[in-house]
Simulated assay, not measured.
Amino acid sequence: MKAEKWVFGFIFVFFLVVTPIYWFMSGEIAGTFVLGFSALLGGMIATYLGLTARSFDPRPEDRDAEVVEAAGPVGFFAPQSMWPFWCAITVALIFLGPALHQAWITLVGVGFGIWALSGWVLQFYRGDYKH
């Protein structure tokens, strides 16, 4: 967590320095707020990572460790799945409705989305990859 903390700390300091410079050069209020809130977001994440890193042992990346210490199973990754495709079609239908001023297309997309999202969430409860 040490490296991530420093990355977000740098983001905090960078936007903290850039925000007043942007304000004086442009005088625009919206961009100034966006840059200021970006600084706050980077500071919040850096603080969270710094506080969280104290509560558990450091990872091998956070200390001088050998490569072999980080070896082992990383986790479970889903094999090929058709459900992201159907969820993408669903999102396209949901956004197509307002674009064409047709509410029924959005409703069909929402109904289709319930099926597609349920299939994606529950894909490992049946079939070949059942747990």
Rank of each mutant, 00 (worst) to 15 (best):
A116P: 03
Q80N: 09
F8W: 15
L49I: 12
F85W: 14
A92V: 09
S38M: 11
F112N: 08
P84G: 05
F12R: 02
K130C: 01
Q123A: 04
T32L: 01
V91G: 07
L16D: 03
I29Y: 12
L117D: 06
G43V: 07
E66I: 00
V13G: 01
V67S: 14
E4I: 00
D64F: 11
G50Q: 06
F76E: 12
G42P: 07
F8K: 11
L100F: 09
R126I: 00
F112Y: 15
A78V: 00
I114D: 04
Q123M: 02
V17I: 13
W120F: 10
G31E: 01
Y125E: 13
G36A: 09
L96P: 06
Y125H: 14
H101W: 01
Y22I: 00
F15L: 05
L41V: 09
A78G: 00
F37L: 15
E28P: 04
T19I: 00
G97S: 06
W86N: 08
A78D: 07
H101Y: 02
M25Y: 05
K2R: 15
M25G: 01
G119C: 02
G9H: 04
W6Y: 14
V18G: 03
T32D: 01
P98K: 12
P84K: 07
W6N: 14
L117Y: 14
F12P: 02
E66S: 10
Q80G: 07
S55K: 15
P84D: 04
A46N: 09
T19E: 08
M82S: 12
F37P: 08
L40E: 03
D57V: 00
F24K: 11
D57S: 08
G111R: 06
T52Q: 15
A53C: 04
F76A: 11
I94P: 05
A65L: 01
A39N: 13
